[in-house]
Amino acid sequence: MMTIENTIKNKLKGLYYGNRMILPFNCHLLKVIIEDDIIMDFSPSSKSIYVHEEENFTEIYFKLFKNIKDAVSKYESIKLIAVEKDKDIFNFDNHYKLAVHIEDEHKLTIDKTDEDILFIE
């Protein structure tokens, strides 16, 4: 199973197609920010998001957008707070703050957010 740590270390890329984002690791999501939408409801009835977990990747559908490329501009990112699948979710040290940048050819770069980026948990 690919981990968040390995993804960042090996600079692995994710994918996106329309409003579907595919992250190359399996994780628990705690918070997602896209544009000025702050998403914290990940239940199946959520109107904003649908999350589907596979063994080696996590799929996220942004229901309010047709294409995430239109929603996220050049210097912006989709921000996530995520926890490795097998780690203690209650330990804040395990909470990864990630910035997902949209690139061409359906690719996503995934980085830990640095100190300069505004991201409140």
């Binding site: 920010i33 544009e35 912006e76 505004l118 948990e121």
Partner: peptide
């Protein structure tokens, strides 16, 4: 307001 929301503040 918009900048704050993008930073994750509700």
């Amino acid at each position: 307001k918009s900048i704050s929301e993008r930073a994750g503040i509700e």
